[in-house]
Write a protein that binds this DNA or RNA. Structure first.
Lengths: 212, 212
DNA sequence: CAGCCGTCTTGACGGTTGTCCAAATTATTG
DNA sequence: CAATAATTTGGACAACCGTCAAGACGGCTG
């Protein structure tokens, strides 16, 4: 094992070790990213390590070298997915100069996300459900959920601010609302319901002034 | 095959045939109910037909006799689950004579559901996520989702009625909100977060007057 | 009672799974 | 350049999966 016991017999400098650790971790992320491709396509239940390997440039042995376990791999995937996801609307929030501008920017990104990244998002909902069964997932999933709640809250407070108001509901309720709407829209969209996206946009457009 | 081709050569009376069909279907439901036990424990991804059989009084062959497929079995489970679920709050809705009575009755049932039937509900969220990958699930899942939305809507309209008002939001938004809150609370509850239930109740108690 | 039919059991099948490992390859060090 | 460590490979393994089929069981009908 390479990255295991860093006990007494370490003659390398600390700098060299952290460098190696970084390289090791970069490789892990590289593998996780490749795994996400297949996971998004097939879902957690149907995805095997071999399938992941076959759909990527790596052999299945490498995955076992970098990850102690299948759960370890998927946990890494989830954690990596988080970073991408949470900043999605930040640019819109910081650049928008009016309520309308924020609304339209938010809606545009929402629609684009639903259409272009449907696979990644269904994986998120899949893994969040898995966390209800598999304790190993819970910590990461709860953490991501918190981040997403904070993301929605940033949008809401900015929207309220632009109207000199304050959000009328709690961060938890607001996130629950948007998450529920998005989840429902995603399922309908994947079921080829062409009204899924416009319905979602209409609903959010109607809702935003109500809440803030 | 028993229940397949009912072509030309049927000498039995229609009455006898429907009787047999009913018996056949009752058995299916019996098996589905047994399967739900294991599915609720392990989740879709980890549940095999053999595991279902071993945790029940049936052999794995019976399941293949009554269900053409693993998906067929699970579809039947989902459909059966629906009937149980959708009427849960109906008694409270019809008997409540005041807003407070409805609120307290609803909250009590909500808390009980979250605590006593956590396993069934995590399975529901699991299968709904599976529907995003597996087209065979979509029809049933979308149908159940509609039923649940209607269930929430019955509560909301009754609550509004008792205050001589009308609900301020759409059925879809309302369902999304409650579903999102419940899902989040369920995950926290399963992660042994003792504040999950009271937090949910507080949130709903605060939300109800806002919405209607 | 004999024969049939619906029901159920049991074991087997090919394929896939996660895991592990020994050997090959590449990088890094002395 | 040697030698040591890190990385990668691809095959082997037992266990498990969904599916199937041959046959046993038991009740009903003729």
């Amino acid at each position: 094992m390479a990255r295991q016991a860093t006990g007494a017999a370490q003659r390398v400098t600390v700098a060299a070790e952290t460098l190696r650790d970084e390289k090791f971790n970069a490789r892990r992320i590289e593998l996780a990213e490749a795994a996400l491709e297949t996971l998004g396509e097939l879902g957690f239940a149907r995805t095997s390590l071999r399938e992941i390997a076959q759909n990527s440039a790596f052999t299945h042995g490498v995955f076992h070298y970098y990850f102690s376990d299948k759960l370890d791999l998927i946990c890494c995937c989830v954690r990596h997915y988080k970073a991408k996801c949470v900043t999605r609307y930040d640019e819109v929030v910081t650049t928008a100069r009016s309520r309308d501008e924020l609304t339209e920017g938010f809606l545009a990104k929402l629609a684009a996300t639903l259409q272009d990244e449907a696979r990644m998002h269904r994986l998120w909902y899949d893994l969040r459900s898995q966390a209800m069964f598999e304790p190993a997932f819970r910590k990461d999933v709860l953490e991501i959920d918190k981040s997403l709640e904070a993301m929605i809250w940033r949008i809401a407070t900015r929207y309220a601010e632009l109207g000199n108001r304050k959000p009328a509901s709690s961060p938890a309720a607001l996130y629950a609302l948007f998450d529920g709407l998005f989840q429902s829209a995603l399922l309908r969209h994947l079921a080829s319901d062409e009204k899924a996206v416009p319905d979602l946009l209409d609903e959010v457009r109607r809702l935003l002034p109500t809440i803030c």
